[in-house]
Design a protein around this nucleic acid. Structure first.
Length: 804
RNA sequence: GGGCCUAUGGUCUAGUGGCUAGGACAUUACCCUCACACGGUAAAGAUCCCAGGUUCGAAUCCUGGUGGGCCCACCA
């Protein structure tokens, strides 16, 4: 058989994608007797297309999935899409040019669901295209009925366990999206702003100056803080200050949190400028003065500034202060403010009704659970613990949005009692459905809860969501805890942590035995890729240009957990690998055309040499893969293939396979046996990394002899033929060969040019030398080779003289 | 400010106590050698971030510093 001259990656990759799908190569078998290996696949968010970071970390988890499959595990590798929440709402609003707030919830939700159906196949295809070997028939979306049912059931369970409560509390609020957001949904944004020095009157007559970037919160001022050690002002502690444009007086209090260096050294305490203000209110038991509405407009408590939006109010307050001569100065300031990451709007802190999961009392347990999980790499656990130790707030799970899993409760119209949905009626939409029973007070009139659940409240249940698709099967009970959670390091603090929390409450168990944490793909200068910086790379273009294998080959180049700067030229390495293995296979298959899988009576020593090296490589690669160190496997297998196999072994074996009449049948057969097993083993070692080219070559030749219908269902290689003596002979061989090549290169001669005479000295026996002599003569194109055995105590291992 | 990680030829990296510090990309020279010129052979290129320390011996371990990354906190 002969391979085409060139490998067409695009054509080939598309072909095998179809084949894998048609042949159900990655199908999980729930009835299998084999040990299962379950993966809690991260569901990517449909609101954004696959970016390079995705292809990086999903490739890395796929290496592991493919390896586990090849060592015989029944791999449970589901695929889901995360498509509820604010991000999706914004995408749909943009796509369809609508405003969710202005529509009936039902209509907007239906529009979202319908649109998602349209875009989902294309979206998922990107993951298939990079070769993610998930079983796409084990599919969920975080908004489908199945997920909603599980998410609402989780809510009910926690409610019954007294872990959920509803409370009016100050919380981070986005006035643009008009919803509470979590701390993790905020990001920093740099702003040029003004630091306004305002003069307040005090009851001791003299004025004090307060510096602020938020003068518009003046009507919400509830106290003035001074550091007790601040000699300039501490005499004023206990006195009162008058709020301009009002009759109110506030206390001047001592507060050690005040930074004496900042501004004037005096802080005005508002409702609520930041989380410190919230803390101080609680500590000092001061009543808040809430001047902001949910849309960021000042209300009647703001007095004459009522009806203005914060930005306008800021100008108005400054102007009014100027008119009363209350501005000492205004300094430009460049500072960092918190904005909502989705819309870049400055966040506010508002007092609203929210649902919380109470868990601050369980920090120690969560840390304990974290230590039961095996972390790869281990140091990532520190981030998890660091986060837990710093937790200050319970988990706010309610969002004032439309498109999410509804919070399954109603309020009795008469007695205000909270009625929670029953499990058998899930999923439920309290705005459309009714409770199954009447209220204790006898009333049958209810108000449905409008809020929906935070998207993390659902995605923290991915193990349950995936596994419950097999609820009726015997395997169901064996899948928890799952074997692996693969994900990137940026979401340890929420997705990973939240999943542990849910598993703790619902199963009293860790969700998975291990977690592998991927790093990030960075831009060529080691910076984070982001749309705003304009340094994002589209993986689809890279695949088109270089192939998915090349992208994966690159992704395998970083150690697990390490970030990797992306340089387009690095993808060339992967395409070169494909070309090389294509050509090496072409040669090998050509010489295996008359090979019938028989084993020779006696293997040539050089063949034993490479098979011994191969045995060691396989052993190491297996161990590395067991520890999720795929990058070592890739590195070592690639090096072995290129340098050991191609540069040296193929050159050595040529004489025997080309010239049977001269070298004898056994010599050829020994070579064929070695070629077959070495190349097949290399293919298999690389199959998890570059699944397409290895499948192509497996199908072209090896499939005829190996039983598996795909290389990805074939057995992981095993070879146990370590022979140190043969390795010594092989190393001697390679050294002589290198010396001859060097000599020719220095004389600018072709490698084909015959060599008159070689004198080779080494620490091998004459018998060993004689066993490699014919191969050595042919490979070096020497007319004559003399050998001299060096004593063991000789300083040099080898000495070679080449006469050209 | 706190936590974690990281620093190796121009670039990306391998290497956790002893090797002439390995490889890839890029560079230079030569070679159309019967799998491959999308190739081969060879060459050049690294005071292993800096300063101390431990050790017979440090790229590797410890301390401090500097640079980079991520997460968290702060940002009146």
């Amino acid at each position: 058989m002969e391979l085409p001259k060139r490998y067409n990656a695009n054509e080939s990759e598309e072909k095998w994608l179809k084949y894998w799908e048609k042949e159900k190569v990655y199908l999980f078998n729930p009835d299998s007797k084999e040990e299962a290996y379950s993966i809690d696949t991260p569901p990517p968010t449909v609101s954004g297309k696959m970016h390079l970071g995705h292809s990086f970390s999903y490739s890395q988890q796929d290496f592991v999935a493919r390896f586990q499959r090849m060592i015989g595990k029944n791999v449970f590798y589901p695929f889901g899409t995360d498509d509820n929440g604010l991000a999706t709402e914004r995408m749909i609003e943009k796509m369809k040019n609508v405003k969710g707030q202005k529509m009936e919830r039902k209509d907007f939700v239906n529009l979202c669901l319908k649109t998602l159906e349209e875009i989902r196949p294309d979206f998922v295809y990107d993951w298939k295209r990079i070769g993610v070997s998930a079983d796409y028939s084990i599919f969920y979306t975080t908004i489908n009925e199945h997920s909603q049912r599980i998410s609402q059931r989780s809510f009910i369970d926690l409610y019954k366990k007294d872990r959920i409560y509803r409370k009016r509390a100050p919380f981070v609020w986005c006035p643009e999206c008009q919803t509470a957001i979590a701390q993790v949904e905020m990001k920093d944004s740099e702003r040029d702003s003004r630091l306004v020095y305002m003069k307040f009157d005090t009851d001791v007559g003299k004025q004090i100056t307060i510096a602020t970037t938020r003068p518009e919160l003046l009507p919400a001022c509830v106290a003035i803080h001074i550091h007790p050690d601040d000699k300039r002002f501490n005499k004023l502690i206990g006195k009162k200050a008058k709020i301009p444009f009002s009759d109110r007086e506030v206390k001047i209090t001592a507060n050690k949190d005040v930074d004496m260096e900042f501004g004037s050294g005096i802080v005005y305490h508002c409702t609520y400028g930041d989380m410190d203000d919230v803390k101080w209110l609680e500590e000092l038991k001061i009543e808040p003065i809430e001047i902001l509405n949910k849309d960021g407009i000042l209300n009647e408590k703001a007095g004459k500034f009522k009806g203005l939006h914060v930005k306008k109010a800021r100008e108005a307050v400054i102007k009014a202060l100027e008119e009363e001569n209350r501005i000492e100065k205004i300094e430009p300031i460049h500072h960092v403010v918190n904005v909502h990451e989705r819309c870049e709007t400055d966040i506010e802190i508002l007092n609203t009704d929210q649902w919380f999961i109470k868990y601050l009392d369980l920090k120690a347990d969560f840390i304990k659970y974290g230590r039961k999980i095996k972390w790869y790499p281990d140091h990532m656990r520190a981030r998890y613990e660091n986060w837990i130790e710093g937790l200050k707030w319970d988990w706010n799970i309610s969002r004032q949005r439309h498109f999410g899993v509804p919070i399954p409760v109603w309020y009795c119209r008469k007695c205000n009692e909270i009625i929670v949905a029953e499990e058998k009626q899930l999923p439920v939409d309290p705005l459309a459905d009714k409770p199954l029973k009447s209220c204790k007070c006898g009333s049958n009139e209810f108000i449905g809860e409008k809020d929906v659940l935070d998207t993390w409240a659902t995605s923290s249940l991915t193990p349950d969501i995936a596994i419950e698709l097999f609820k009726d099967k015997a395997v169901y009970k064996k899948l928890l805890p799952m074997d692996l959670r693969p994900q990137a390091h940026d979401i340890i603090t929420f997705w990973l942590f939240n999943t542990v929390v849910k598993s703790y409450f619902h199963h009293q168990s860790i969700p998975w035995k291990s977690t592998m944490i991927s790093g990030w793909a960075l831009d060529p200068h080691g910076k984070k890729m982001s749309k705003s910086k304009g340094n994002v790379v589209d993986p689809r273009e890279m695949i088109k240009k270089y192939s998915a294998d090349a992208l994966r080959f690159w992704a395998a180049g970083s150690r697990l957990g390490d970030d990797l700067p992306f340089q387009e030229k690095d993808l060339i390495t992967g395409t070169k690998f494909a070309t090389k293995i294509w050509n090496a296979s072409k040669f090998t298959f050509m010489h295996l055309s008359d090979y019938k899988s028989e084993k020779p009576k006696k293997l040539e020593i050089i063949d034993i040499w490479i098979l011994s090296k191969l045995s060691k490589l396989i052993k190491e690669s297996t161990e590395n893969f067991m520890n999720y160190e795929y990058s070592h496997t890739k590195l070592e297998a690639d090096k072995f293939f290129w340098h050991m196999f191609c540069d040296n072994y193929l050159e050595i074996v040529k004489d025997r396979v080309y010239n049977v009449e001269k070298r004898g049948k056994n010599g050829k057969l020994s070579g064929q046996y070695t070629l077959y097993h070495t190349l097949l083993s290399i293919m298999k070692l690389m199959a998890p990394i570059t699944p397409f080219i290895t499948e192509e070559l497996y199908q072209q030749y090896f499939k005829k002899y190996e039983k598996a219908k795909s290389i990805h269902l074939s057995k992981w290689p095993s070879f146990d033929m370590v022979d140190e003596e043969a390795e010594k002979a092989g190393e001697f061989f390679v050294f002589v060969l290198q010396q001859v090549r060097k000599a020719k290169s220095e004389q600018n001669l072709s490698l084909k040019k015959p060599v008159k005479r070689i004198l080779a000295k080494g620490k091998i026996t004459l018998e060993q030398f004689n066993a490699i002599k014919d191969d050595l003569k042919a490979t070096t194109t020497a007319e004559e080779i003399e050998f001299e055995q060096l004593p063991e105590n000789n300083e040099m291992d080898y000495e070679v003289v080449v006469d050209l």
